[in-house]
Design a protein around this nucleic acid. Structure first.
Lengths: 231, 231
DNA sequence: CACGGACAGATTGTCGACATTATTGGGGAT
DNA sequence: ATCCCCAATAATGTCGACAATCTGTCCGTG
């Protein structure tokens, strides 16, 4: 016999929702870099209690999306240009290792999925759909992580990726980037298919070196268009 | 000369003490692997409020030292043997990269400090002081991270290290390990002094490959002496 | 006019109380 | 005897209140 509650039940997972929405808000730019995150304000805005916000902030601090200073509150963490490059460098190192392992361990199912992603990528390139291509790009890499069966490295790489969202959209837009990117991905796939660890790591590193170059290009572009407002 | 600081994320006063003491307790084995961490109990034991414990648990979960399941509480995370090896593998990859960078960037001050550490290491080896050697080992590696000026990678490696404390003491005790380890460290130092990136990365990887071997040896040893009960 | 101390407002840190959810153990029906 | 359902219990999730701390401003002093 279900007893009627006196009050509409609050979200049963307020903490989780606070975390997800805050994270989403930061990723989508609703909360700007260096913006102060006042607990009470955020709590109101998200419709949850301050406790939930606080827990979310601790998590995001550990993840590097937010900085949390004692008695001085939280701000959206601004990933410096230098740090963005550092992140990309670490990512290249780790993903190279993952590609190596994936080459040794890839199953037919892994290869089938990857081939499918490549096929879809070609379609997006033909349609000049850079955004769609970007999604597929993420899927491609994640599929390799899964094939490598290396939970530790995968977790780290995933965490790094979430930190570098700020510049992601800039890099997508480089003219001609998608075509080159597609060829690089094909090279990676070929190496995986051939179960050649050295080639796989090499192809992945070459690919991510190109991504680093694109990132530098994007950063310089932002500097050149330095028309940002004080405050 | 200004170096990029390796900033540990800090949290408030009581929360901070709760975090540190819990972490210490897990590292030192006061809290056993898979042991359930009931918030109220831990709060009493540490003499802080439940809120502080909860915040600490969130951080430790994010760091990988405890697992936190919704509505089901926290337990000390048992790092599986496989995971320990994974961690060591990632560490080798990242520290190899850091050694490479350190070789390019090392200043005379860096090299002087490292040489000093090596000198002290020799003394500990002569005195058969494995524990003291282990401390110096940590200092040696951290000094290289600092020289590499790569905050992102340094933070990750530090976090990994904290997760693999469980087996650390086992690995120290392997007979003859310290002597070999010393020689490996000397090789790393020579490469850094010569500002030879390739040699530095190679020496570091060789060193950590040996550490991985020792880890496997320690794990097998524990299996052979498998007379302990799951808590 | 510059400097520094102290006050006021705002924000974070901590705690205890209450609601919600999992777990355990017992009782009854088959 | 076994299984299922349900109360009792224990632990977690959430909230509001209060204390501690920080920040900016105003005012008196030199």
């Amino acid at each position: 016999m279900a007893r009627t509650p006196l009050r509409e039940p609050v979200a049963p997972e307020a903490g989780n929702t606070a975390y997800r929405r805050l994270r989403e808000g930061i990723a989508s730019g609703q909360f700007h870099p260096n913006e102060r995150l006042v607990e009470a304000t955020v709590a109101n805005r998200l419709g949850v209690g301050r406790t939930a916000v606080r827990a979310a902030l601790v998590r995001l601090d550990q993840e590097g999306l937010v900085t949390l200073e004692p008695n001085r509150g939280a701000r959206v963490r601004l990933i410096s240009d230098r740090e963005a490059l550092e992140i990309e460098e670490v990512r290249a190192t780790l993903e190279g290792m993952l590609a190596r392992r994936a080459a040794a361990k890839a199953t037919p199912a892994d290869l089938r999925d990857l081939r499918q992603v490549i096929v879809e990528m070609r379609q997006r390139v033909e349609k000049n759909d850079a955004i769609g291509y970007s999604d597929l790009n993420a899927r491609f890499h994640q599929r390799i992580w899964a094939a490598a069966e290396h939970a530790t490295a995968s977790r780290l790489v995933g965490s790094l990726k979430s930190q570098s969202i700020r510049l992601q959209y800039q890099t997508i837009l480089r003219p001609g980037r998608t075509e080159r990117s597609l060829r690089e991905h094909e090279a990676i796939f070929d190496a995986l298919k051939a179960h050649d660890p050295n080639a796989a790591e090499e192809a992945m590193r070459a690919h991510l070196a190109e991504v680093q170059e694109t990132l530098k290009w994007a950063i310089e572009g932002l500097h050149r268009a330095s028309t940002w407002l004080p405050g």
